[in-house]
């Protein structure tokens, strides 16, 4: 399930909103890039177990 929408109406009758896909992509990129960097560096270190 990639997205999940709230129920049709809110208790206080608020208008539905649409979360921009760009914002979701930006948020995931912001946390994903450093995590990928950390993973890459750690895998590189871990490989020395085989080569070291």
């Amino acid at each position: 399930m990639s997205t999940s929408l709230s129920q049709e109406s809110s208790p206080n009758g608020q208008q539905p909103v649409h979360t921009p896909a760009g914002l979701i992509a930006f948020a995931w990129t912001l946390v994903g890039v450093p995590l990928a960097y950390g993973l890459y560096q750690t895998v590189k270190t871990a490989l020395t177990l085989l080569t070291g």
Partner: peptide, 9 residues
């Protein structure tokens, strides 16, 4: 969150 907010944020 208002209705329609995407929880994957």
């Amino acid at each position: 969150a208002r209705p329609g907010f995407n929880r994957w944020l």
